[in-house]
Each structure stands twice: as C-alpha cells, then as structure tokens.
C-alpha cells in the first residue's frame, strides 16, 4: 500500500461538479451509473471522473465544503488542541492533493489551501511519529489504540512499524539462541 494506491481508492468518493456539457445517456458502470449530465446543473460524480472531465474542460469542480480557508483553519486549531488525532473528512489528503493538482483554477485561494493542508498533515504526522515511538518504547503491553487515522497515514506508518516488529523478532531470536 502506498500513497498512490490510497489516491486511487480515494478516487471513488463522490464530489460535486458543474458540467458544461449535456449528455442524456448515463454511463453504466459496475459500481453505479454516472450521469446524465446537463450543462450548468450540479451533480455528484466520483473524483476520478471529475478529474478526467476537468482535463477535457467539460466541467467545473465544486470544492468540498471543508476545502475552505476558514474551515481548514478550524481543523488546524482542533488538531493543535486535541491530544489524539482529530476527526477529518474521509480521504482528506488524497482529495486535496488531487484537486490542487488538477483543478487548481476551481479552488478559491488555492495557495492558502495548499499550505493549510500541509500544516495539518505535518501536525498529524508529528503526533503519529511520537505515538509510534511511545508505543515501541514500552515493553509491558503489546497493544495500543489510536483513533481517526487516515488511510494514507496508516499506510505510511505501516512500513516503520512492520520493520520495528521484525527487528524485535530478530533481537528476541538472538537472546533466545545465545547460550547464557
């Protein structure tokens, strides 16, 4: 699992767009129908379709509600204040990344949004790191609970934790096999 795959999974979440084309025939897919489109009437479609359409100048993306400077500031303060991780909308980082990359014209104050999202990410990343170290340092209990971890964060932390676990196994092996 890597960031790219997380983005792929996030691509399936819905987002609102304002199409600039009209098409009566919906697109039938296994996961559900997309469309029909009518120019100027907002509709909800998966992010990946939205981005494809955006590249073809076929629609305008309506940024999600949380992708607003004030909203993001709120999230940032709650992140700073809370001990654990704060609750975020699903696929927060993946969607922001995709929209900032491909639909930057449609986001209001895109620069501020970009830096705020980065701030939130950094803050959470720091928390994750410190809690991971905390978890690895203790040797009594072998479980921990951490809520509201995003998919992308879990996948980025997984590598470290996995490596540490294996390291632990190696060390244990060493102790067990060395004659006293």
């Amino acid at each position: 699992m890597n960031a790219e795959r997380c983005e792929f999974i996030a691509g399936n979440s819905l987002i609102e767009v304002i199409p600039s084309i009209s098409d009566d025939r919906p697109i039938h897919l296994i996961s559900g129908d997309i469309g029909p489109f009518e120019a100027g009437v907002p509709c909800r479609i998966p992010v990946w379709t939205a981005i494809l359409m955006k590249r073809k100048h076929n629609c305008k993306v309506v940024a999600p509600q949380w992708m607003d400077v004030d909203e993001l500031k709120k999230i940032l303060t709650s992140e700073t204040e809370s001990q654990g991780l704060a609750k975020l909308p699903d696929h927060f980082f993946e969607i922001s990344h995709m929209l900032v990359r491909d639909a930057r014209e449609d986001i209001f104050e895109v620069e501020a949004v970009k830096s705020l999202v980065q701030d939130i990410y950094d803050r959470r990343d720091a928390k994750l790191r410190s809690s991971a170290i905390e978890f690895l340092r203790q040797n009594q209990t072998c479980h921990a609970q951490l809520d509201n971890v995003q998919l992308i964060e879990a996948s980025s932390a997984r590598a470290t934790l996995e490596a540490c676990r294996q390291m632990g196994a190696v060390v244990r092996n060493k102790h067990e096999s060395t004659p006293l």
Binding site: R104, F108, E109, V110, E111, A112
Partner: peptide
C-alpha cells in the same frame, strides 16, 4: 480572477 490582490501561482 477570484483571488483578488493575492499572489497565487496561476
């Protein structure tokens, strides 16, 4: 363009 007066990298 919407971002009045602010520098953006558009």
């Amino acid at each position: 363009i919407v971002n009045q007066g602010k520098v953006d990298d558009l």
